[in-house]
Nucleic acid binder design. Structure first.
Lengths: 66, 66
DNA sequence: TCATAATGACAATTATTCTTTACATTAAGT
DNA sequence: ACTTAATGTAAAGAATAATTGTCATTATGA
């Protein structure tokens, strides 16, 4: 799975710490999700979509091997 | 988090086993997700949205305590 | 009414997420 | 050039996801 979290953060001029605080997880977790180290829960995906004002499908896309 | 998986399955006249096969997980996992026993990964949410032909936000909704 | 299908639930196990703490590296601003 | 902010990485631990196997209960179709 790939994602565009960094792009959405740039649109809002937010740091990883800003996003972490907005959705209630640690800065390290945001980093691990953003860099593809782990696949977040759907709750986290929905929260990100909500604070960015977009659909989950815009931020996260399935890849062939998922 | 709540979901409308049962409604979408009914639209397609699918059993839990049918959905499980479509997205590549066990029937027991579909049951646990559908009954709210656990929160699926975003990969699973995207796959469900895809096979149902709807957005993730239609199937899964955040609740106040999420 | 009955047989079968579908669903709900549970236990044990493994894999993964997410946290916390900490440190290194890179980027940014002056 | 230097200081600080932001990001990347890692280890250890707790909690949860997802699997497999199984059984009970309910729903469905004939």
């Amino acid at each position: 799975m790939k994602n565009t979290i960094k792009v959405e953060r740039a649109r809002k001029n937010w740091t990883q710490e800003d996003l972490a605080r907005e959705i209630g997880i640690s800065r390290q977790s945001v980093n691990s999700i953003e860099t593809g180290k782990f696949v977040p829960s759907t709750v986290l995906a929905l929260k990100m979509a909500k604070v960015f004002g977009v659909d989950v499908e815009l931020i996260f896309q399935l890849e062939d091997q998922d």
